[in-house]
């Protein structure tokens, strides 16, 4: 068949292009614009070149926040992924327990981020919170406002409580799609419980797990609302993640230039990590399709 070359078809993309321009490209360009200029208000701008970028990349503040982000993501992935798999494996496959479990699992996902933050903020308070009071009455010195370890623990437990459900639901979907014949064949082959998990369930969950890891990593890497509500980045800067720092800088201190430079760097980090995940995932897909 002969291919028709018609460049007019590009015009069909125009409406989307306009939409994307207004929603993404133009705001992004504004940020780029801020990142290379300095302003003292009154709409007066001075060219600053790459100074802001240099400032950001040379500041401990940025690297500390980035470090905290990476540690936080690593910890919650290390907890949520295995825990999610474990819960999914133990959820009922049929009967009245299925809808009950699914609803219970979906519940935390339906709560708005800042409400989750508020819940835990109140829950952990030493003066009135159920958790805080209980721990205090047990003689445990817990105070997320003053102790960095307690603050981290609170945020991690909160995130696990909020998001493990997502991993559970994804894994559960992967598990129920495994035909019975696999389990029957495994019984005939004399496979142990561990072998069934290792050679049937885990490989069949592989793709959804990858999606779960990607979603949980991205989300935790960009976390803002919950720690902002619970600790506000404190004590000190102990729970100040990149996003929190960015807001502090841009809105609290009105350092538009450095904030714009920092958000661009942040954006590039997220973008490149997404690209890595995307490449891994599509490679995985090709291997399966062979």
């Amino acid at each position: 068949m002969e291919r028709t070359v018609n460049n007019k078809a590009w015009f069909l993309v125009l409406p989307v292009l306009v939409l994307v321009a207004f929603s993404a490209i133009i705001p992004l360009m504004t940020v780029v614009n801020y990142s290379v200029q300095d302003t003292f208000g009154n709409n007066q701008f001075f060219w600053a070149g790459l100074d802001w970028f240099q400032d950001v990349l040379e500041s401990d503040r940025f690297w500390d926040a980035l470090g905290r982000n990476l540690i936080f993501s690593a910890i919650i992935l290390a907890i949520e992924i295995p825990l999610g798999i474990y819960i999914a494996l133990n959820m009922p496959r049929k009967g009245w327990g299925v809808p009950v479990c699914l609803v219970l699992m979906a519940l935390p996902l339906l709560i708005p981020w800042n409400v989750v933050g508020t819940i835990w903020q109140v829950f952990g308070r030493v003066d009135i919170g159920l958790l805080g009071r209980t721990l205090a009455s047990m003689g445990i010195d817990y105070n997320y406002v003053q102790d960095p370890v307690d603050a981290w623990l609170t945020i991690i437990v909160m995130d696990v409580w909020h998001w493990t459900s997502l991993v559970v639901l994804l894994c559960y979907a992967g598990l129920v799609s495994i035909p019975d014949a696999y389990y029957q064949a495994a019984r005939i082959d004399g496979a142990s419980r561990w072998s069934v998990f290792r050679f049937i369930q885990l490989p069949k969950m592989g793709r959804v797990l990858l999606i779960a890891v990607l979603l949980r990593f991205m989300d935790s890497f960009m976390i803002y609302t919950e720690p902002f509500v619970v600790t506000g980045g404190g004590p000190g800067n102990e729970t100040t993640f990149l996003s929190i720092d960015l807001v502090k800088m841009a809105i609290g201190q009105f350092d538009v230039g450095p904030a714009a430079a920092m958000s661009l760097v942040y954006f590039l980090i997220v973008l490149s990590l997404s690209w890595v995940f995307y490449t891994v995932m599509t490679n995985q897909g090709q291997e399966t399709g062979k």
Partner: peptide
């Protein structure tokens, strides 16, 4: 099922995806 020592081939092929052909056969 295991003690009865029978073999069963199902409607849809059941293989252990991550293993090689050799390991699939060696598995039982």
């Amino acid at each position: 099922t295991e003690r009865r020592n029978i073999a069963q081939v199902f409607q849809f092929p059941v293989i252990y995806d991550t293993m090689t052909v050799y390991d699939n056969l060696a598995f039982p």
